[in-house]
Amino acid sequence: MSRIKDNALSLTFLVLFLLSLAGQALAGMLHYNEQQLVEGGEAVSFLTYVTSSSFAVDVAENWQSEYLQFLLFIMLTIWMVQRGSPESKEPGREGAESDEEQRIGPYAEADSPAWARVKGWRLRLYSNSLGLAMGTVFLLSWLAQSVAGQAAYNSERLADLRDPIGWSAYVTSPEFWDRSLQNWQSELLAVLSMVVLSIYLRQRGSPESKPVGAPHSATDVSG
């Protein structure tokens, strides 16, 4: 039970993610089958739908926008600050910070990760591993979206008796960028709202909020 309690936040979000993904798949299949029947086509099974390009592109385009949000937030907060926001470092601390502040190399502690105590490429890799992981997932999901999106788009074109297009033509098409940018703008607005609203508003007990009594100008503090 202690292990579950110690990991309750990640486990809860994992369950919510799986439930929402299953719900999206079910609702998406029902919607897809409605369209198929209207257009004179045949309904498909749940397994057929979740392995289709239509489902893959919907999932991938959401994932790539989310990981783009995280990647930008992680990287931009290294060099940019927002006075008063708990999501920002204090003004004057811009940059990658010193080895002592980061507790790496000779300043590593006994329980520091092993690669934080070494030098060379392993330290450089581990020092940027979070951004690299987010960037890799973003690029892979972007690629998956482009491939699945091309397949789904070409299916629509063939149904309309139009010629299919290649991958490069698809990723430069209005269809692809309309799907991408409508997700990007919502994610960027969410980050902007979190950064700015957390200056003036509070949520007692949340590490994403400043303490209720903290002044609006307090930066890099959490409740």
Rank of each mutant, 00 (worst) to 15 (best):
D6R: 11
A8T: 11
L9Y: 13
L9H: 15
L14V: 09
V15Y: 09
L18V: 04
L19Q: 08
L19I: 10
S20W: 00
A22N: 07
A22R: 04
A22W: 02
Q24W: 02
L26Q: 10
A27Y: 05
L30F: 06
L30P: 06
H31M: 10
H31T: 09
Y32N: 01
Y32I: 00
L37F: 10
E39W: 09
V44C: 01
V44N: 00
F46T: 00
Y49T: 00
T51W: 00
S52N: 02
F55R: 00
A60M: 02
W63L: 07
Q64I: 15
Q64P: 11
S65G: 13
L68C: 05
L68N: 02
F70W: 15
L72N: 05
L72I: 09
M75D: 15
L76K: 07
I78P: 11
W79K: 09
M80T: 14
V81A: 09
V81L: 11
R83N: 07
R83G: 08
G84T: 03
G84D: 03
E87T: 15
E87S: 15
S88W: 02
E90D: 12
G92E: 05
R93F: 13
E94F: 04
A96T: 15
E97N: 13
S98C: 05
D99E: 14
E101Q: 14
R103G: 09
I104T: 06
G105K: 06
G105E: 02
Y107Q: 05
A110R: 13
D111F: 09
D111K: 08
A114R: 12
R117D: 09
V118S: 09
V118Q: 10
K119Q: 15
R122Q: 07
L125E: 09
L130N: 11
L130E: 15
L130V: 14
G131E: 05
L132D: 07
L132T: 04
M134A: 13
G135H: 03
T136H: 07
S146E: 03
S146G: 11
V147N: 01
V147C: 01
V147S: 01
V147H: 01
A148G: 00
G149C: 00
Q150D: 06
A151H: 04
A152Y: 00
Y153I: 00
Y153Q: 00
N154I: 01
E156C: 10
D160Y: 14
L161V: 15
R162E: 14
D163P: 07
P164C: 02
I165Q: 02
G166S: 05
W167F: 11
V171W: 06
V171I: 08
T172Y: 05
T172R: 09
P174G: 06
P174C: 04
F176W: 04
R179Q: 07
L181Y: 11
L181G: 06
L181C: 08
W184C: 10
Q185K: 14
E187V: 08
L192R: 08
V195A: 04
L197K: 08
Y200A: 10
L201D: 07
R202C: 03
Q203V: 15
R204T: 10
R204P: 10
G205R: 12
S206K: 11
S206P: 05
S209T: 06
S209Y: 02
S209W: 03
P211V: 03
A214F: 03
P215K: 06
P215E: 08
H216A: 14
D220E: 12
D220A: 11
G223W: 04
